[in-house]
Write a protein that binds this DNA or RNA. Sequence first.
DNA 1: ATTTAGATTAACCATATGGTTAAACTATAT
DNA 2: ATATAGTTTAACCATATGGTTAATCTAAAT
Lengths: 208, 208
Amino acid sequence: MDKYIGMSKKDNNTEEKIIQAAEVVFIEKGMAGARMQQIADVAGINKALLHYYYRSKEKLFNVIFKIAFKAFIPNLLEVFKGDKDFFTKLRYFVSKYIDVLERNPHLPGFVLHEISHRPDNLMKMVKEMNFDVDFIQDQIAEEIAQGKIKAIDPAQLLINVISLCIFPIVAKPMISGVIYKGDEKAYKKMLKDRKTHVADFIINSIKP
Amino acid sequence: MDKYIGMSKKDNNTEEKIIQAAEVVFIEKGMAGARMQQIADVAGINKALLHYYYRSKEKLFNVIFKIAFKAFIPNLLEVFKGDKDFFTKLRYFVSKYIDVLERNPHLPGFVLHEISHRPDNLMKMVKEMNFDVDFIQDQIAEEIAQGKIKAIDPAQLLINVISLCIFPIVAKPMISGVIYKGDEKAYKKMLKDRKTHVADFIINSIKP
DNA sequence: ATTTAGATTAACCATATGGTTAAACTATAT
DNA sequence: ATATAGTTTAACCATATGGTTAATCTAAAT
């Protein structure tokens, strides 16, 4: 096991442990509901050590938020830059994105909740990571121009796609409780089916 | 101005003021982020008076949550019990529901966040108010049987409808920021258009 | 072996926060 | 006028919470 200079003591991945613990706690409880003590407990360290690495709760939160936000708008969108058929890319995206969210069910709720709570602060952060979804809208416009899909506002279509992917995850307890009367299995099956259903539903709507 | 027996002092609608203040604060900040002091301030009363009417933060929260939840799943769903054409009812529902949410933009985020934070406690509460969306799914199944709409899992269709209505509200800062680059006007226009767009999009997808 | 510099902890600190209490207030009934 | 019963408040209280400090520990460098 090689060590770097200036590295000491038994545990050389404390930062990593803190990040992982903070991810779990923040994403589940949100900024307001999270407790530094609990993060320390989950990380298996002293509370003061949190402040040694990340000076304040807010600083630590910002680190976690960035990580969460990147996972929330994944590289997956890049598939639309490929030269495959648009419907094929759509099917791929929907399936993979629901897959990602299914494995991080608290992620979208966390990001949406926090971003709507401190829009200014967080939108600034978002802008720093400069995301771009314009190229997708351009591509939709191009598809329409070529008569490959019906006329539709590209922004609306984009919003529809992400709504149909994300909402069923954000509203899991709601859907699971009200529609499926608490039957978790039924909810899970619905999500699985959804990986193809959503793309079918969209394509049905926009094919010429 | 008539008074009831056992009613006293200048202000006879303190409870009302508390509820309104609590609604504003809880729905904007969530249970964890809300402060009893702020609720008292917004209501223009002493903090102790909150505890006089509602013994604890949790009790007060439960009252507000019920109100919020009822507004979140509005009577609007009743329109599907009418004998109008299914597509007509769908158009009406989508338009009116987006309208309601537009005027209470923090409502869906609040309900979803809290319900996913304490699923057991809150689902119990939800069950007490026993909601029923089965009749809508039955109706969808019936429409399919009559060949009036394409074959589709009724639950999936129902989830699609509410996803397309609610998500754009929950994700307002997200959409406004990332898709519309902070242009509030553009976001508002999108929402307005959406009142017809969503129904069109759905009907396009499911018409035979 | 000693020094050094970063890592870790126990013990604190100041403040925020939910909640309580006892006194004061107000309108109504007598 | 006085009593009564609900209403309202200022002053507290106990605890939780984010954050700090000073001492201790550890591994590497000398």
